[in-house]
Design a binder for these strands. Structure first.
Length: 594
RNA sequence: GCCGACGUAGCACAGUGGUAGUGCAGCUGAUUCGUAAUCAGCAGGUCAGGGGUUCGAAUCCCCUCGUCGGCUCCA
């Protein structure tokens, strides 16, 4: 635990102390520090609401001012349990009810571990520590929100109230944090998406099913253009597959019934005699379709690696409570591709995929990223993971090797792999430091054999290929959600839905404005002209608010000289340009995706 | 799916038992203007939907739908 985490964890104890002052019967579970502060889970008949915060914070402040020292005490398991039974853990003294969550926690502490208690004032808690020296060291804190959480995160356990707060060493840092949150709110893709008319949702269409307005559709098309160029250069071939498939496909892939609850319910057609039904599913992933394309023709080792790419549309029945703007949807279009290769080709193919990720990060100005390399747990072979220890080891070693050699920033997480092979999730941080899980990259050695995929090797023997699933741009939905927040809606010119707006100073300039408009459109520039009778200041204001990267202002002077006056969204007035110079600059910026 | 909060015009919000309001956006007209808001007029709502309590409901109660904050899950 670092210094800040220690401080925040101590603050959680102070929160618990304050809650007990008001509701002595409260039962506490866990109260750890988290990335944004801390929380404490509490079971309490009274529903704590934000209206209670003022009162709680007042109590907390008293405790902080009292500078109560945190005292550590080592106790035996028996002693700890006995105290828990007397209700003396996470409490201000003995109570008639046992401290039941704490007792449960003690029972799950491994035999060889020391059990410690921490006391501040009258409050004693079961806690591994560490803590700050005394409560006055906590600095600045604030309670932020309440939510519910299952005990130990398990749906079968009781739901507790989770009180969230945050704490910093100084008041200034606390205020800076809330200012950052305000900034984040302004950039929220749901808010900007509405304001910039990028996408919408409609009750009659359904939750989690975004409708893309023309401006949002431009973003999608530009991303696809980028992906198509990049993938073409990297030797991918484009394929297209239907949005539905029969249940037999998913039986072969192993997704049914394993994945069934994440899929939309099946469509059952009463077609055959004897009442046997033909069943179709909306596809939740593209891999099985692509595997069928691999199987469609006899394949030789000379054909490998074979790289099938498609912006495949997938449907997943996400739980209603999980849906969140564009970040979590039920209909998504993936920047998907499957690479079929031999074991010998694996390392270089995997390396090339990683390089593609890095190329994209550079284009979008993603400076902070991390790859989470998820591996299997040997104890769960045959249950959570396909039972093939040799291939697990082999593929994991290959992936780790590539990651280490290419100097990519990664962490290894055991027990998180996909059931068919190790996977890599890509976390990126937006310009204001918000974290997103954007893309995935998985090795699959289990499903190709299920589909009986083979190629003929140089010795005329059948062999099963390895498959790499990769989606560097994730899904359109989530990636665009990320880009909106990353750029705060100020998209670079190549991506901007409206690239140039022409603003004539008066009606007399309409025809010159239209000349420029048609010249720009002839060069595939997404331009419009504001021919309203507003004054120039109002037109500029509108264009600024709509975040149009370039404004072209034309008056009598410009018309006479065949020039234009340029104003950029970010830099303001840039002065006079000849039309040709401006067009050249624009084309250059669009082409290089600057 | 679960717990909690919320849902008033395209958007941002006011209205807490007695005739639905403000600002921006929109439409019409006037204005023809040089780098972030010209003026005037008009129009726009089954107060998410349904049921109930009441002489009377945006307001109180119940159900459904949706959104938000979390939990679990994931691109």
């Amino acid at each position: 635990m670092n210094e800040l985490e220690t401080l925040r964890h101590s603050c959680a104890h102070v929160l618990a102390t304050a809650i007990l002052k008001l509701w002595p019967e409260a039962q506490f579970a866990a109260g750890p520090p988290i990335a944004t502060g801390f929380y404490y889970d509490v079971d309490l008949a009274h529903r704590i609401t934000p209206e209670d915060f003022e009162c709680l914070e007042k109590e907390m402040r008293k405790i902080v001012e009292a500078a109560q020292p945190f005292e550590r005490q080592v106790v035996s398991r028996e002693e700890a349990l006995a105290m828990g039974q007397r209700g003396a853990l996470a409490s201000l003294g003995e109570r008639s009810m046992p401290s039941r969550f704490k007792v449960d926690i003690i029972e799950h502490i491994p035999e060889n571990e020391t059990i410690t208690l921490y006391r501040n004032g009258e409050f004693t808690d079961l806690c591994a520590g560490p803590h700050v020296a005394d409560t006055s060291k906590i600095g600045a804190f604030r309670l932020t929100h309440v939510a519910s959480a299952y005990y130990k995160g398990d749906e079968k356990n009781p739901q507790l109230q989770r009180i969230y707060g945050t704490a910093f060493a100084t008041q200034e840092e606390l205020e800076a944090y809330f200012q950052m949150l305000e900034e984040a709110k302004k950039r929220d893709h749901r808010k900007l998406g509405k304001e910039l008319q990028l996408f919408t949702f409609d009750e009659d269409v359904g939750p989690g099913l975004p409708l893309w307005l023309p401006k949002g559709a431009v973003l999608i098309e530009e991303l696809e253009k980028l992906a198509k160029e990049t993938e073409f250069q990297a030797g991918y071939q484009r394929v297209r597959t239907p949005h539905i498939a029969r249940d037999t496909l998913y039986k072969t892939s192993g997704h049914l019934p394993y994945y069934a609850e994440s899929m939309f319910p099946p469509m059952e057609l009463e077609e055959k005699e004897g009442g046997e039904k033909t069943v179709y599913y909306l596809k939740a992933m593209n891999c099985p379709h692509h595997h069928k394309l691999f199987a469609a023709l006899p394949r030789s080792y000379r054909d490998l690696p074979l790289r099938f790419a498609e912006h495949g549309t997938c449907y997943r029945y996400e739980q209603s409570g999980e849906l969140m703007g564009l970040m979590r949807v039920r209909c998504m279009q993936m920047n998907d591709a499957h690479i079929y290769c031999t074991e010998e080709q694996f390392a270089s193919e995997f390396q090339a995929v990683n390089e593609m990720y890095l190329k994209y990060f550079k284009i979008f100005g993603v400076e902070r990223y991390q790859m989470r390399f998820s591996t299997h747990d040997p104890a769960k072979l045959g249950q959570k993971f396909v039972d093939d220890p040799i291939l697990w080891k082999k593929t994991e070693d290959m992936v780790r090797d590539v990651l280490v050699k290419s100097g990519i920033n990664f962490v290894e997480i055991p027990n998180e792999a996909a059931f068919y092979g190790p996977k890599i999730d890509v976390q990126v941080w937006s310009a204001i430091g918000r974290e997103f899980t954007l893309a995935t990259n998985q090795v699959d050695f289990a499903v190709p054999p299920r589909f009986g995929l083979t190629y003929t090797n140089s010795e005329n023997k059948k062999e099963t290929p390895l498959c790499i699933h990769r989606a560097p741009l994730g899904t359109h939905e989530r990636f665009i959600g990320f880009l909106i927040e990353h750029f705060a809606g100020n998209f670079p010119v190549w991506l901007a839905p409206e690239q140039v707006r022409i603003l004539p100073i008066s009606d007399k300039l309409t025809s010159y404005a239209q000349t420029i408009l048609s010249e720009l459109r002839a060069q595939d520039v997404r331009a419009t002209a504001d021919l309203s009778s507003e004054k120039i200041g109002a037109k500029i204001r509108a264009a600024q608010i709509e975040k149009v990267p370039y404004m072209v202002i034309v008056g009598n002077r410009e018309e006479a000289a065949g020039q234009l006056s340029l104003r950029s969204h970010s830099k303001g007035d840039e002065g006079s340009f000849t039309k040709e110079n401006f067009y050249h600059r624009l084309q250059e910026e669009i082409k290089t995706r600057k």
